[in-house]
Amino acid sequence: MRGSKKTGGALIQNRRMSDEVYITLLVASVAVGLFLIASLLVPNFFQWLNLLNLVTNNWAVISLGVGVTFLLVSGNFDLSVGGVVALSGVLSVWFAQSTGGANALSSGLGLPYWLAVLSAITGALAIGGLNALFVVRFRIPSIIVTLGTMMVARGIAQVITQGSQRNTNLPVEFGVLGNLTAFGTSVKLPVVLMGVLLVVAIFIERKMVFGRLTYWIGANPVAATLSGIDKARHVTFLYLFSSVIAGIVGILLSSEFKSGYSNRGTLMEFDALVIALLGGVAIAGGFGSVVGMFFGALILAVVTSAATGMTLSPDWQYILKAVAVFLAILAQTWALARRNR
């Protein structure tokens, strides 16, 4: 036997922070740093309430980001989530609207609310299933498939709302879910649900076999198959998972605004992708984390809200996103290369 035999103790003692934790810490410190810088530049920025708002205002995109992050880690895109948000929101309204309204847009199927919600989620699942069918069975690049299903989902929403929105003839309970506040605070139910989702997602990612399978598949799909992992089944689950989240987000949003609007969620798929990339998720697969995505969302929130605070035109958001992603990718590549030199 060559060399000295390592004892178990040494093998653990020598444990080094993984690249993933390293990048996540990097992203987190950038988020904190940006928050501090923004506090210096923008009056009244440095407030707990503002910090809280940065998260609560972005609950929808952060929730979508969870599904998108899992898929990216497995090596797949999901650009359909924005469309699914619109579809499920519109479906929940249409199903819940009572029959026999004054015109086509004010009469729906008159289902009880719980059934309307379930049916809307089923509609979202159908889009996720379509994604899985095309990506897993037909092996068509996920970027093209999910661009297509994004249009299909939004297209169905537009047909149901005739290109505008449905907001009449709704049962009273329709507006409850999206506007319920939790524990006497101003925090709304969707934000609480986002928190729960994040905790569950981090648990799945870090502690469960399901999370580990996602990394294995993303890291090396061929080796994963030869190691007995059912890749097709897992990626199918991930697409269904992502579309259910998007479906629930859509239902909550339409409940909050008491309307089903076919253009709701426009560009949300793009923002979800952006925060994942900012958070260090690699589109090559096998690398990234939900926590990183969360801090990525914070970075984006700080940058955009600081820009608004500095009275920049809202049109700046596109440029800021582009520059942020560009810098994030370069910085992460550089940091990893330096670290592993």
Partner: peptide, 22 residues
């Protein structure tokens, strides 16, 4: 058909084209 069918038709055509290429 009314204009609001357009997105749906384009999206469906995109998926159909991708599937037939495959």
């Amino acid at each position: 058909v009314p204009a609001y069918y357009q997105t749906l038709v384009i999206g469906t055509t995109l998926l159909a084209a991708a599937a037939s290429n495959h």
